[in-house]
Amino acid sequence: MDIKYTFLGHPALLCNDIEAEKKFYIDVMGFEEAFTLFHDDGTPWLTYIEITDNQFLELFHTKYPSPNRTSERSFHHFCLEVDDMAATLEMLKSKGVTVYRGPVDNGRVMDVPNHDHQPGMCGTLCAFIRDPEGNDIELQQYTPCSMQIRESGREAV
């Protein structure tokens, strides 16, 4: 019998400044706090942020000792699929978020609105942003020519 996976449940991030992270994901990105779990002594352990039904981001109230630089960690980024890239980027920029064309470390800031936004190598529209802890977030909108759509048999939104 084959295993049937239904979703990627959540990426999990350690947070040196949990309040800044929560503010970013709730106030800027527009997600909602689902719940917080606590240690036996009553101190917060982790907070779940709801992205969509059955899709979460897990924020650990756990500091990490090293710089959180992309080139020095295994984790590279996580990706959020959006249904309207232009509107998403406009909203984020209006909240002071810098939008990048490609990974943030490339340093190519994207002009928003960007009416000449061309699909990337896999046929999707994509842009990158960074949260307060320095974690990169890819924003992606599938198009009819997206390899993810063509290969899965799914339809683009």
Rank of each mutant, 00 (worst) to 15 (best):
I3G: 11
I3H: 01
I3M: 13
T6F: 15
T6L: 14
H10A: 10
A12D: 08
A12R: 08
L13H: 04
L13F: 12
N16Q: 04
N16G: 12
D17C: 09
I18L: 07
I18P: 01
E19N: 15
E21H: 10
F24Y: 12
I26D: 08
I26R: 02
I26H: 08
D27N: 14
M29H: 06
G30R: 11
F35G: 06
L37Y: 14
F38H: 11
H39N: 13
T43R: 10
L46G: 05
T47I: 04
Y48I: 02
I49Q: 06
E50P: 11
E50S: 14
T52G: 15
N54S: 05
N54Q: 09
N54M: 12
L57Q: 01
K63H: 04
K63F: 01
S66K: 02
S66G: 05
P67H: 04
R69D: 06
R69I: 10
S71R: 09
R73C: 11
R73T: 14
R73V: 00
F75W: 08
F75T: 00
H76G: 10
E81M: 01
D84L: 01
M85A: 09
M91D: 15
K93C: 11
S94N: 10
G96S: 10
G96A: 07
V97L: 10
V99R: 03
Y100M: 08
Y100W: 02
R101K: 15
G102K: 10
P103G: 07
P103N: 07
P103S: 08
G107H: 02
G107Y: 11
R108V: 13
R108W: 01
V109C: 11
V109S: 05
M110N: 01
D116R: 11
D116F: 01
H117W: 12
P119Y: 00
M121G: 13
C122Y: 12
C122P: 00
T124D: 10
C126S: 05
A127T: 03
R130N: 14
R130V: 15
P132Y: 06
E133L: 04
N135W: 05
I137D: 00
I137H: 03
E138G: 06
L139F: 04
C145H: 02
Q148C: 05
R150C: 04
